[in-house]
Design a protein around this nucleic acid. Structure first.
Lengths: 212, 212
DNA sequence: TAAAGACCTGAACTGTGGTTCATTTCTTGC
DNA sequence: GCAAGAAATGAACCACAGTTCAGGTCTTTA
C-alpha cells in the first residue's frame, strides 16, 4: 500500500467534520432540528449527501454530535458563571442567581437554539444527549443546594427534587410555550423575577429583588 | 335516494369512533404515541385500517382527539379539586396545594400516560393540543395567584411568569427525565416537598409541611 | 326484495428522507 | 507518473407508515 493517513489528511478530515457540525448547528439554531435533513446539512456544508457518511455513521449521530457541541457550550458558560462566584466566596443565593442569570441571558439571545436544545421533538439518540445535559444542569443546581443546606443557608429538603423543580421552572418560564418572556423589554426584566422565584422555591428568603 | 342517516346509524358511528379513541388511548397510555400507528389502533379497535378514515380525516386528527380526551379528563380532575377548595373558602395556599396534590397523585398513578401527555415527542397537531392544555394549567395557576395577590396572601409579582414556572417545576419534578420520584415510597412523600417548593416559589411562607 | 347510499376491508400506492454504492476524483509514497 | 487506497459524488435504493381505492357488505326506505 502506498496511501497513508497523514497529518494533512487527518486535519482535512477534521475540518470537514467541523464544517458539517457547524453547518448543522447553523441550521438547527435558525430552523430547528426538524429541518436539519442530511441533504440540507450537506448542502450547507458544501458537500454531497454521501460525504456525510464518511464522517458520521448516521444522521442521528451527526445530530447528536451537533447537540453536544451546542449544549456543551451553553452548559460550560453557565457552569463557569457559577464557578466564578465560587472564586470569591460561597453564597448559595449568589451562585443560584448567577446560574439563572447566565442561563436566561443566553437563552434570550438565542431563543430558537434554546428551544431546539430544550424542547424541540428530536430523534431518540439526540434525546439521550438532551437527557444527559438536563441531568448536568440538575446536578449543578443540586450541588449548589447541597452546599447551601450543609452551610445552613438553605432549609433541609431533597436537593434532587428541588433541583429538578428549579430546572423545570427555568425551562418553562423561558422557552416553554407558556413563557411570557416575549412581553419583557429587557433581560433584567426576566432574570429578576425568575431569580426571585427560584430562590424562594428552594427556601431562600429574597430581600432585595432589584440587583446587580 | 333511499338510505338515510338515522339515530341508529349515528350512534353506531359514534360507538365506532369511541372504540377507536379508547383503543388509541389504551395504546398511548401503555406504550406512548409513537407506537400508536393507524394499523395498531385499528387492530386494537377491531377494525381495518381503512375504517379509521371514515371516522377521522387523518392519523394526526385521531391522535389529537385522543390527546384531548385524556388530557381533558386530567385537567378536569385538577380543576375540580381546586374548585372544591373554593367551595369552602378562598385560601391561596390550599388551592395551590390541592392542585399540586391531585396533579401529582394522578401523574404517579399513570406515569406513562403522564409522560405521553406532558413530554413525549408528538405530531405537530397533537403538540398544538398539548400547548392548549399547558396554557389551561398555567391559566389555572395564574388565576389562583391573581386572587392571592389581590387578597394580599401572595406578594406582588408577574402571575404569568410565576404560573409558568410553577407548571414547569411540577412537570419536571414529576415526569421529566430528571424526576427522582421513582425513589419515593408514597405519593405523600412527593406531594409534600413539591407543594412546599411551589408555595415558596410564589412567595407563600410554608409553616407546617406535613399536611392533609 | 330492490335500489341507493354509506361503511368496511385490506392490499396497493405514495411520499419522504435516510442510506448505499458504482464511479470518479484526490492523496500519498515511491 | 503510477499504483493503492481513501474520500467524494449523486443518483438509485429502501423502509416505513400514512393514505387511497376497488370491490364487497350492511342499512335504510319504499
Amino acid at each position: 500500500m502506498v496511501y497513508r493517513e497523514t497529518d494533512r489528511t487527518r486535519s482535512r478530515a477534521a475540518q470537514r467534520r467541523e464544517r458539517l457540525l457547524a453547518a448543522a448547528e447553523s441550521i438547527v439554531s435558525t430552523d430547528g432540528f426538524s429541518t436539519a435533513t442530511v441533504a440540507a446539512v450537506a448542502k450547507a456544508a458544501g458537500v454531497s449527501t454521501g460525504a456525510v457518511y464518511t464522517h458520521f455513521p448516521s444522521k442521528a449521530e451527526l445530530l447528536a454530535a451537533t447537540f453536544r457541541r451546542a449544549a456543551g457550550r451553553e452548559f460550560a458558560a453557565v457552569q463557569d458563571a457559577v464557578a466564578a462566584v465560587d472564586d470569591r466566596r460561597t453564597d448559595t443565593a449568589r451562585r443560584l442567581s448567577a446560574l439563572v442569570e447566565v442561563f436566561t441571558r443566553r437563552a434570550l439571545r438565542g431563543r430558537r437554539l434554546a428551544w431546539s436544545l430544550l424542547v424541540e421533538p428530536v430523534d431518540p439518540l439526540v434525546e439521550a444527549e438532551r437527557l444527559t445535559f438536563r441531568m448536568s444542569y440538575r446536578d449543578l443546581v443540586e450541588g449548589i443546594l447541597r452546599a447551601g443546606i450543609s452551610g445552613g443557608e438553605v432549609p433541609e429538603q431533597d436537593p434532587k427534587l428541588a433541583a429538578a423543580a428549579v430546572v423545570g421552572a427555568i425551562g418553562e418560564a423561558l422557552v416553554g410555550p407558556l413563557s411570557p418572556i416575549a412581553a419583557y423589554p429587557t433581560p433584567e426584566a426576566v432574570t429578576d423575577p425568575l431569580r426571585a422565584i427560584c430562590l424562594r422555591a428552594v427556601g431562600i428568603a429574597v430581600v432585595n429583588e432589584g440587583s446587580r
